[in-house]
Simulated scan of single mutants.
Amino acid sequence: MTAPVPGLEAAFEVDARLGPLEDHGVTRAGHRRVVPVAGGRISGLFDAEILPGGADWQIVRPDGAVEIDTRYSARTAAGEYVHFRTSGVRSGPPEVLEALLRGEPVDPSQYYFRVAVHLETSAPRLAILEQSIFVASAIREANAVRYTAYRVT
């Protein structure tokens, strides 16, 4: 007997609006940057508003790659909360990463930006969010991050 080969099915879209990047300099963990999450929308498997107050606590590695570590919350129209935590990496040629940092538009095929999406909720109708694994390929824009989350089947 062999294990099933996983597949991907589109689950929901995330459009997160971002605040200005805060450069905290080099700490014991590395070059720390914090990018506030100012709001946004979720649509698809569930629809919700991203609430302000979250952030991406990034570490810029010596090779220029950025370790992604976000936490933010969303609320559905019915008042249900979904907590998001993503972890991943954004990497690419130095000139591409510098252009992204300046807020310039960059073709997403020019860089690698992938995250695992971990979800928590107390809403019974959204239980599948806690019973599944989600991954995404993201796009960084000047003031936003957009991605489609895929459920691993």
Score class of each variant (00 low, 15 high):
residue 16 A to P: 14
residue 70 T to M: 02
residue 23 D to Y: 13
residue 105 P to E: 03
residue 69 D to R: 09
residue 64 G to I: 09
residue 149 A to W: 10
residue 16 A to T: 14
residue 64 G to H: 09
residue 148 T to E: 11
residue 22 E to T: 06
residue 23 D to Q: 06
residue 109 S to E: 13
residue 116 A to E: 14
residue 1 M to T: 10
residue 100 L to F: 07
residue 36 P to A: 05
residue 145 V to F: 08
residue 13 E to T: 04
residue 96 V to L: 09
residue 70 T to W: 05
residue 140 R to L: 08
residue 113 F to E: 05
residue 57 W to G: 02
residue 112 Y to P: 02
residue 31 H to A: 11
residue 141 E to F: 05
residue 123 A to L: 02
residue 103 G to W: 05
residue 39 G to C: 04
residue 17 R to K: 14
residue 130 E to C: 04
residue 140 R to W: 13
residue 55 A to W: 13
residue 44 G to H: 05
residue 142 A to T: 12
residue 44 G to W: 07
residue 65 A to P: 03
residue 94 P to S: 04
residue 153 T to Q: 08
residue 50 I to M: 12
residue 68 I to S: 01
residue 127 A to R: 11
residue 32 R to C: 08
residue 151 R to W: 05
residue 87 S to I: 14
residue 11 A to R: 14
residue 88 G to Y: 10
residue 113 F to T: 03
residue 140 R to E: 11
residue 56 D to K: 12
residue 116 A to I: 13
residue 33 R to A: 01
residue 149 A to S: 14
residue 62 P to M: 07
residue 47 D to N: 14
residue 79 G to M: 01
residue 131 Q to I: 06
residue 59 I to Y: 02
residue 153 T to L: 11
residue 51 L to C: 01
residue 125 R to G: 01
residue 97 L to N: 01
residue 25 G to W: 04
residue 92 G to R: 01
residue 148 T to Y: 02
residue 137 S to P: 04
residue 77 A to E: 12
residue 78 A to K: 11
residue 131 Q to R: 13
residue 60 V to S: 00
residue 115 V to R: 10
residue 83 H to G: 10
residue 100 L to G: 03
residue 21 L to G: 04
residue 121 T to G: 05
residue 70 T to K: 06
residue 55 A to I: 07
residue 94 P to M: 01
residue 34 V to H: 03
residue 71 R to Y: 06
residue 7 G to I: 00
residue 56 D to V: 07
residue 66 V to N: 09
residue 103 G to L: 11
residue 150 Y to I: 00
residue 43 S to F: 05
residue 41 R to D: 09
residue 9 E to Q: 10
residue 13 E to M: 09
residue 4 P to T: 04
residue 91 S to M: 09
residue 114 R to Y: 09
residue 12 F to Q: 07
residue 144 A to G: 05
residue 15 D to M: 00
residue 68 I to H: 09
residue 94 P to N: 02
residue 135 V to K: 07
residue 152 V to K: 03
residue 1 M to N: 12
residue 148 T to V: 14
residue 111 Y to W: 10
residue 79 G to D: 00
residue 37 V to E: 01
residue 7 G to M: 03
residue 32 R to E: 13
residue 53 G to E: 02
residue 14 V to I: 15
residue 127 A to K: 08
residue 45 L to M: 13
residue 17 R to D: 07
residue 124 P to L: 02
residue 55 A to S: 15
residue 101 L to Q: 14
residue 76 T to S: 12
